[in-house]
């Protein structure tokens, strides 16, 4: 079982999560993350085979809504807080497909 993360793994996970982390801070992250993983390792002391995973506190099913349009256009309000817009579009650096 893997309990410690090296700098390269931290960098890989950081990219997966799109988080820039300064290279000088990476060893610190690696140390703390390893400590956390080590801590949660305690779970492995328990045999959980056959135990149904619990994703929600309550064992009930999902409530559904009727197919009704309830929302109206509030673009101006929503785009007031946007970093960059033009002609009603959100602008981002060029997306290359």
């Amino acid at each position: 079982m893997l309990m410690s993360l090296d700098a390269e793994q931290v960098a890989r996970i950081a990219y997966l999560a799109r988080l820039q982390i300064d290279s000088e801070a990476i060893p610190d992250y690696a140390r703390n993350l390893s400590a956390i993983l080590d801590f949660v390792e305690q779970m492995n002391a328990v045999d959980t085979s056959g135990i149904e995973p619990m994703a929600h506190p309550q064992d009930v099913s999902q409530r559904l809504r009727d197919d009704v349009v309830t929302e109206s256009n509030q673009r101006d309000l929503f785009q007031q807080i946007a970093p960059a817009t033009e002609n009603g579009l959100y602008l981002v650096p060029k997306v290359i497909e």
């Binding site: 197919d67 349009v69 309830t70 673009r75 929503f78």
Partner: peptide
């Protein structure tokens, strides 16, 4: 072919002005 979106009450009609049918 629903009137509203899968998880919100915004309209699914095609061809509206950009971002006018995008709710919270």
């Amino acid at each position: 072919k629903t009137r509203s979106k899968i998880f919100s009450g915004a309209s699914t009609a095609y061809g509206a002005e950009p971002n006018t049918q995008a709710c919270t």
